[in-house]
Design a protein around this nucleic acid. Structure first.
Length: 425
RNA sequence: GCCACGGUCGCAUAGUCUGGUAUUGCGCAAGCCUGGAAAGCUUGUCCCUUUGGGAUCGCCGGUUCAAAUCCGGUCCGUGGCGCCA
């Protein structure tokens, strides 16, 4: 959420920001109106509490002096009831206030392109040449099935749609990708953390909005736990309530985890294969930094992602998320998309975001600056989500004989240092 | 899972039995002092609000004029026992 004080002081800016996102700015007015009522009530309650505290003190003094307190106690008895009534009113207002607050989005960076939806996200960079094939190409599902390195029939039987069995060389390629990405981030000086994959519902709910939660998160019934959709959540949760020392910032961390997503209403979840699944492996980067550094860190995170793509020799482009497509908690965001020769399109494989202090305000993650505590800024970016990168490798590096060449950078990570997947042994 | 004990201001700690101003030390910040520093002294050091105040003792609720303190529930931690990859 945004800082309430900031909304009070900058209503025009908040509304203008919403207009740029093609959202109804009326929410800001509704919020301010309710907020004013809340504050007024708050002041009343404070006065009542003050009266009560004073009377209690009087009773205490009178008692100690050995005086009869019956008369004062009788007087004091009415106040708690009035307070209680007002507190109930206040709680009601609070309940109205929170959803309104959640609807007011983070203030976008001035560089964010204006656009209605994802069709208007501009391409800001393109790297690598899409491969040319002298033979009819297969998509990754056909490659997997012809080489026997994945089984989607078996996973459909065991778990339903959106799962997969990886077998043999492909399962090993998956592990190679994870190791490659972990080594890469480690060399960049990021700190490696393996996190819980289940979080308490309320902890998880603090990192994303209610709608997003309902659409993506699997809950573990009767346990009050939920499976993470990305290690971003568990990494943020790791630092909930933390106060960093200024010398420890920027705090650059990364994690490998399995991720679980319901993908309710998502396009393509019924498609067979590895592109969109309920369960996948991801190496994730997260940075906590001083507010003035967050756009510098944004550039660094993007550079990391691009280097990974370039090292794997995968053709990609970078698109910037336009105002209308930008999630409420982000001020700026970009996707790295990989070339898919089978669809002749680029598809999302990495997602970079600067969330500034919007998430962190709920989580209360701060930096101590000479005795003053300030909220940090939080950023996140994919390092490598293996299933989609495997799709890209299988499709871009396929050979005429049906085999697939392992990208050079991954060969050292493959058992036996094999250079080709699917070669008859 | 069972039993015992515990959770207090950044850290440490008193207060809980017997309800009535949240104690002390350390660390940190500002000021005084100093040639400069240390020491010493003063003030501050979670949040909201500010003329006053209000809230806060893991969390939620109850009793009460008044709850760190009493009652109920819950979460977390430590030790022991049990189970176990």
């Amino acid at each position: 959420m945004l800082d309430i004080k900031f909304i009070r002081e900058n209503p025009a800016l908040c509304k203008d920001n919403m207009k740029k996102k093609f959202q109804d700015p009326k929410v800001v007015d509704d919020f301010l109106k309710t907020d004013e009522q809340w504050r007024k009530l708050r002041a009343e309650i404070d006065t009542l509490r003050h009266d009560r505290n004073k009377i209690s003190e009087e009773i205490n003094k009178a008692k100690k002096a050995g005086k009869d307190v019956k008369a004062i106690v009788k007087k004091a008895k009415d106040i708690p009831n009035i307070i209680k009534k007002n507190e109930e009113k206040q709680a009601k207002l609070q309940k109205q206030l929170l959803p309104l607050l959640a609807k007011i989005p983070n203030i976008m960076h001035e560089s964010v392109p204006i656009g209605k939806d994802d069709t208007q996200n501009p391409e800001i960079k393109k790297w690598g040449k899409p491969p040319k094939f002298s033979f009819p190409i297969k998509n990754h599902v056909e490659i997997c099935e012809s080489l026997g390195i994945a089984d989607f029939e078996a996973s459909a039987k065991s778990s339903g749609n959106g799962f997969y069995y990886l077998e043999g060389d492909l399962a090993l390629l998956n592990q190679a990708l994870i190791r490659f990405a972990v080594d890469f981030m480690q060399k960049k000086g990021y700190y490696y953390i393996e996190t819980p994959i289940m979080l308490k519902n309320e902890i998880l709910a603090a990192s994303l909005d209610t709608e997003e939660f309902a659409k993506t998160i699997y809950e573990v019934k009767d346990e009050g736990l939920a499976l993470i959709g990305t290690a971003e959540y568990s990494l943020l949760a790791r630092y909930t309530g933390a106060t960093f020392l200024e010398k420890d910032l920027p705090k650059k961390v990364f994690s490998y985890s399995m991720c679980f997503r319901k993908e309710i209403g998502s396009h393509g979840i019924n498609e067979k294969g590895l592109w969109r699944t309920h369960q996948f492996n991801k190496v994730e980067q997260v940075i906590f930094c001083a507010p003035e550094d967050s756009y510098k860190m944004y550039d660094e995170l993007l550079k990391n992602s691009e280097e990974i793509m370039q090292t794997l020799d995968l053709p990609y482009r970078v698109i910037e998320i336009c105002s209308g497509d930008l999630a409420a908690w982000k001020t700026k965001s970009a996707d790295v998309e990989v070339w898919r020769p089978t669809t002749k399109e680029y598809g999302e494989v990495m997602s970079l975001s600067n969330c500034t202090d919007y998430q962190v305000r709920n989580l209360n993650i701060r930096v101590d600056r000479q005795g003053k505590r300030e909220l940090v800024h939080a950023l996140n970016n994919t390092a490598l989500a293996t299933s989609r990168i495997m799709v890209a490798i299988l499709e871009n590096f396929q050979n005429k004989d049906g085999t697939v060449t392992v990208p050079k950078a991954l060969v050292p990570y493959m058992p036996g240092k094999i250079k080709i997947i699917g070669k008859k042994k």
